[in-house]
């Protein structure tokens, strides 16, 4: 990254702690590039994360940042956004953080349609603690706690957030870095709850256990299995195999929570004055 983008980083904290070939740096770069291309005022961007490899990202990002407790990033972000609705609040989370321990925060923030941008660095394992399976680990794949293959069916996080009422939902991968940057830009601009499922390779704890020996093998797997939303719809469900759709799945308008809440406050104040 050139100095035009590294100015958004805390360069004194680099090199980062992520493993060689980890996708999290690619997603982090995509976020920073999206913020730069949108011309956002860095002072008005707040980044909130929970716990996990993904959630180390804000530590390297030169904005107001909050590194919170496991699964609770969206809860903290909700507080920030309600108190300071003029801020762009971006939540960086992982699949374990967002879908397991923070699963309820995710669905209820989506239900309320609060104006947050949640970017899930989805590497399908708990990388920080050496690769236990998460709620999105693909069926049959191997993890430290699934030595005979994953027996549980995974969440499709995009379907989950859409079902819960999120108004902007998209997926991309680190292979599709330019596309990923573009969907993050759209997500940040969207008014209401936006969610980006960013597939990010964990070569150390997922790839090596699943016949992908390095980061490049994992990126090639994304390349071969990602299909556009329109092509996905044409594949009969029984023939989808390991393929997955990428793109923007939902982009709708609905009443935004902070605005609705402000109206309640105004109404209550008026009624209070009348008494």
């Amino acid at each position: 990254m050139g100095s035009d983008l590294t100015r958004y980083l805390r360069v004194e904290k680099l090199p980062h702690i992520w493993c060689a070939g980890c996708g999290h740096g690619i997603v982090t770069q995509a976020i920073v590039r999206a913020i730069d291309e949108l011309g956002l005022d860095p002072v008005k961007v707040t980044i909130v994360s929970g716990i996990g490899c993904s959630s180390r990202a804000p530590g390297y990002m030169n904005f107001d940042t909050l590194h919170t407790t496991h699964g609770r990033a969206i809860a903290f972000a909700t507080g920030v956004k309600l108190a300071r609705p003029e801020l762009k609040v971006i939540v960086i989370t992982g699949d374990g953080d967002a879908a397991a321990i923070g699963g309820n925060h995710l669905i209820h923030a989506a239900r309320r349609n609060i104006d947050l941008t949640v970017i899930c660095y989805n590497n399908t394992v708990y990388g920080m603690t050496s690769g236990q399976y998460s709620p999105v680990t693909p069926l049959g794949s191997f993890a430290s706690t699934a030595p005979y293959g994953m027996v549980e069916r995974p969440f499709d996080l995009c379907e989950l957030v859409m079902g819960a009422g999120g108004t902007f939902v998209a997926r991309s991968t680190t292979y599709h870095a330019r596309h990923l940057t573009n969907v993050i830009k759209q997500a940040i601009q969207h008014k209401g709850f936006s969610f980006v499922d960013a597939f990010s390779q964990c070569p150390t704890y997922f790839g090596r256990r699943n016949n992908m020996r390095d980061a490049l093998a994992m990126l090639n797997w994304y390349k071969e299995n990602a299909v556009s939303r329109d092509d996905w719809a044409k594949i009969p469900p029984t023939q989808r195999g390991s393929k997955f759709p990428i793109g923007v799945f939902k982009d709708e308008e609905a009443p935004e929570y902070c605005e609705s809440y402000r109206k309640v406050i105004e109404k209550a104040m008026k009624e209070g004055d009348a008494k």
């Binding site: 990254m1 050139g2 090199p15 060689a20 070939g21 690619i26 770069q29 590039r33 870095a177 330019r178």
Partner: peptide, 16 residues
Amino acid sequence: CLLCEMHCPDFAIAVK
């Protein structure tokens, strides 16, 4: 084309 820069997980490449 920036493919190297955008896929560098370490922020270590700058194309100018």
